[in-house]
Design a protein around this nucleic acid. Structure first.
Lengths: 185, 185
DNA sequence: GTAGTCATGTAAGACGTTACATGATTCT
DNA sequence: AGAATCATGTAACGTCTTACATGACTAC
C-alpha cells in the first residue's frame, strides 16, 4: 500500500494534523488522489497502532483541538525500507484510449471534436500543474537533493501531460491530412 | 464506469465468452487491468440485465458449454453515446514518485540503484509492449480508421514509457554530474 | 497421476469515493 | 441569519484484487 507511505512521508517532513494532511494531499496535482477523510483518519489510527507515528493533542484558543501526528524512529525506519523497495511501473488509467478504441461508429467531425476536447482538458490540467509548481508551496527542501527531487517529480507530471498533448495533436493532424481515415464506414 | 464500456466495445468487435474476454483483457498491455473473473462475469450479467448484450449457449464436444455474448442494438447505441462523452485526463498512479519524494535518507548509491531499477522495469515493460504490438493479435481493423486508431492507442503507451525512460535517465545523469546532490544530509 | 487449460462462478477483503454527522468559530 | 472554515470522525457504497470451488478434458 502506498497511501500509508505517502502519509508517513508527509509527516516525516513535518508534523501535521489529519485535517492539514488532507489539504496538502488533495491540493497536490503531482500525486493525485482525492485524499478523503475516511482513509486519512483510518490510516493515521492504523499507523499509530503500528507504532510508526505518535500524536500530541494541541488545544487552541479558537476552534477544536488538533491531533498533530509525527513520525517515530520505527516510522522513519519503515519509510527508509519502503523507499528502497523495487520500483513498479506506473499504472495509467486512460479512459480516453478505450473511448477511441470503440469510436468506429463516430463521424469524422465527432471524432475531431472529441480529440479537441481531450486536448483542452489536458491543457487545462497542465496549466494548473504549472501554476502550482510555480508557487511551489508543498515541496520540502531540507537538502539540495530533496529540492531537486521535488522539482523532478513535478517535471515528471509536466512531461507526461506534454506527451499526451503531442500525441493528441499528431492524431488530430493525421486524421486531417489523410482523408481515407475520415469515416468509420 | 469504464469496464462496462471496455467489455461492450470488445463484444461489439466480436462475440466472446467471459473466459475469452478475460484472456484478451488481461493480456493487453495498452489498457492494463487484471481482468479478473469476478468483475467480468458480474459485468456480463449486469449488461445482459440492462439489455445491452445477449448470449447464446454454445455446447462443444469437448469441454464445458460457453456463453457467447454479443451486443444488442441498444448496446451499440449505449457504446456510441459513451464514446461521445467528454474525455477525462488520464490518472497516473506512480508510486515511484512517492518513493523518490521521501528518499532523503538514502545514500547516493542507493538512490542511483533505485533509478536504475526503475529504468529496467520500464524498459522491460516497453519491450513487452512492443512485442505485443508487433504481433498485433488483439487489434480490430474493420476500417482503415479503426486500424489507425489502434495503432495510435498502442503508440500512446509506447511514448508514455519512453517519456518515463527519458525522465529517469535525465535524473540519473544530473545526479551524477552534480556532486552537490549526492547526499541526503 | 499430476499439472495445465477450458469454462463458469462465489467469497472475502482491501482500497477508494461521496456524503453525512457534529460542534465551535469566523466572515458577510 | 446563513455560509464558510476548522477539525474530527462514521456510513454506505462502489471498485478491484486474490483466492477458492467445481467439473471435464488434455498433455506429460
Amino acid at each position: 500500500m502506498s497511501i500509508k507511505h505517502a502519509v508517513l512521508g508527509l509527516l516525516s517532513w513535518q508534523p501535521l494534523s489529519g485535517y492539514d494532511l488532507k489539504k496538502r494531499i488533495s491540493s497536490s496535482t503531482a500525486f493525485y488522489w482525492s485524499g478523503n477523510n475516511n482513509q486519512i483518519y483510518k490510516t493515521l489510527i492504523q499507523l499509530q497502532e503500528e507504532g510508526l507515528v505518535t500524536f500530541e493533542e494541541h488545544f487552541q484558543e479558537k476552534g477544536p483541538a488538533k491531533k498533530v501526528y509525527s513520525v517515530t524512529p520505527q516510522g522513519q525506519e519503515e519509510l527508509r525500507k519502503w523507499a528502497l523497495s523495487t520500483p513498479q511501473v506506473p499504472e495509467v488509467r486512460n479512459t480516453f484510449l478505450i473511448q477511441l478504441a470503440w469510436a468506429n461508429e463516430l463521424s469524422g467531425e465527432e471524432l475531431n471534436s472529441l480529440i479537441d476536447q481531450y486536448d483542452e482538458e489536458v491543457s487545462m490540467h497542465l496549466l494548473m500543474h504549472e501554476e502550482q509548481t510555480r508557487r511551489g508551496s508543498d515541496a520540502p527542501h531540507r537538502t539540495a537533493r530533496e529540492a531537486y527531487m521535488w522539482q523532478m517529480i513535478s517535471e515528471n507530471t509536466t512531461t507526461f501531460l506534454k506527451n499526451e498533448l503531442n500525441w493528441a495533436r499528431k492524431l488530430r493532424h493525421e486524421l486531417k491530412d489523410r482523408p481515407e481515415l475520415n469515416s468509420g464506414e
